[in-house]
Design a protein around this nucleic acid. Structure first.
Lengths: 181, 181
DNA sequence: GGTGGCATGTAACCGGTTACATGATTAT
DNA sequence: ATAATCATGTAACCGGTTACATGCCACC
């Protein structure tokens, strides 16, 4: 059997911990923003940290520096860093763009600090290409179905297409900003 | 205990069946578009249809009109139609706008044929209001955190905000179209 | 001596998907 | 016959959330 696969949530943990060692509680706070796609509740968090530790992707040490209750501070191992890098740099395919754009964004965030400016530009360049291709496909699809749509259905379809167009616009904007910086 | 809750997927089935009676197979085809948020696989579909039938929200009859294998044709009962209407017309709160916009869109689609033009306009009006309020909140949030953001984090946050701005723009566009039609 | 924030953990559930299995009918 | 399509169904899994439970420490 191949080694156990790493799930999205676990990659999010690896990514957050790549910036700085943190405790489970710190991670919970990190998830407690309205934009986070994961829950800040401990239900999935602590078991995931244990799993990652067991698999050698995280290392834990007990921190008693503060006067508070001792807490387990997690940090990436080399294997964890390698797994994170591989995840970040995996190709961006149509399925990603169509259904997992939020995760692509997350990978972009984590790429900062784990790659050069050129890497980031390249990442967005590839995202832009795949996004444009998918948008073409989507628009063709909508166009071909146009005759069968009711008014609301057409509006909803346009909503979907507009969303991806917005994403494409964002990528272009982000690219110029990255290039000028 | 209160009567069993209806889940999103089941509402989607009710909505699709509100347009015309269909078989499970027909519904699968309806889900087989790239924009659909639900899988076209039968795993969740057929059990859901049975559940809805058992609860009296759907009624099934066997159709042998074609020479093909007999199929179960489902249609809404009065209770099913009432449940669908209640779902469509439920208030649009912040949680809906922030995390469930796709379902709000679905409700908008199903509202066609189950409400007047004025109902649809009112629906979008309320969506627009809630969307604008959430957008304000989000922008304030991002503004207050701006100092702590790295470049990529800021870009990702702007991506999120831009997405909701795009939604707001779509609502306004759809409203003018609805009003002029 | 209670309240509230820090910190970790588990059991149960939930909505949904994958993969598999079956059988009928039509076309080749 | 055999492949493709129509049609229905189930078992197992999956990622994730909810709800609950516990204990430490500081502050008032």
């Amino acid at each position: 059997m191949p080694k156990e696969a790493i799930i999205d949530f676990e990659y999010a943990l690896l990514g957050l911990l790549s910036a700085a060692p943190m405790s489970g509680y710190d991670l919970r706070k990190a998830f407690a923003t309205p934009l986070s796609r994961f829950s800040a509740s401990p239900g999935g968090l602590y078991p995931a940290l244990r799993r990652l530790e067991r698999r050698g992707l995280l290392a834990a040490r007990v921190d008693r520096s503060g006067e508070l209750r001792a807490r387990r501070l997690y940090q990436l191992t080399e294997a964890g860093a390698a797994a994170l890098d591989a995840w970040i740099r995996q190709p961006i395919d149509q399925e990603m763009v169509a259904r997992r754009l939020d995760l692509v964004l997350l990978r972009f965030v984590f790429l900062e600090g784990r790659g050069t400016r050129a890497d980031a530009i390249d990442f967005l360049e590839r995202l832009k290409g795949e996004l444009a291709r998918y948008l073409d496909l989507l628009e063709a699809q909508v166009e071909s179905l146009k005759g069968m749509f009711t008014l609301h259905q057409r509006l909803a379809a346009e909503n979907g297409v507009a969303g991806f167009r917005g994403q494409l616009a964002w990528v272009e904007c982000a690219l110029t900003e990255l290039r000028s910086a």
